[in-house]
Computed example of a mutant assay.
Amino acid sequence: MPVEQRLNALAERFSGVAQWVSPTEAHILTTRHHVEQEGGIAQTTCLAADFRRDYGLDTVIVAGIADAANDALSLVRHRLRCRPAL
């Protein structure tokens, strides 16, 4: 499946792991270092835009930084709930 391969390649680029949460939601878990490195967000934005261009999939980039992965995911989910409707 091309989308899954592309997602895994993106995760690998950030020394992370991709995991599907539902048929329409996937997370990439990585370390804080990879999120904070210079140019990391800009690179991620460009790569995520490729998903829209190549597959017609909308992507949202949200970083949750916490001491534990579950806490970081909770922060991400909270932020997504608070965003304005598109």
Rank of each mutant, 00 (worst) to 15 (best):
T59M: 05
G39I: 09
G40L: 04
Q19A: 13
D50T: 07
T44M: 04
L75S: 06
L73N: 04
D67A: 09
L75R: 10
F51M: 02
D50L: 12
I28H: 03
L75E: 06
L80R: 13
V76P: 05
D67F: 01
A18W: 01
H33E: 12
L7M: 13
V35M: 03
H33P: 00
G56R: 11
L7N: 05
L57Y: 10
H33N: 08
V17S: 10
T45N: 01
V62N: 05
R81H: 15
G64I: 02
T45H: 09
V62P: 01
T31A: 06
R52N: 11
W20Y: 07
P23V: 05
D50W: 09
T44L: 04
T30D: 00
N70R: 14
A66P: 05
I28S: 02
V62R: 06
G39E: 00
P84V: 13
P84M: 02
I65D: 04
L10R: 02
A66R: 07
M1P: 05
Q43Y: 11
Y55T: 01
P23A: 04
V62C: 12
T44V: 05
V21R: 14
D54H: 13
Q5L: 12
L7K: 11
A42W: 01
A18V: 07
C46S: 01
A66H: 11
Q19Y: 06
T45D: 10
T44H: 02
H33A: 10
H27Y: 15
H78G: 08
A9R: 08
A26Y: 06
F51V: 00
L57R: 02
E12D: 15
L47V: 03
L47Q: 06
R83T: 12
N8T: 12
H27R: 08
Q43F: 04
G56V: 05
I28P: 06
T30N: 04
P84I: 11
E4T: 15
D54P: 00
Q19H: 06
H78T: 13
G64R: 00
I61T: 08
A63C: 08
F14M: 06
Q43N: 09
G40T: 03
R79C: 05
F14N: 02
F14R: 02
C46Q: 10
V3M: 01
N70D: 14
A48F: 03
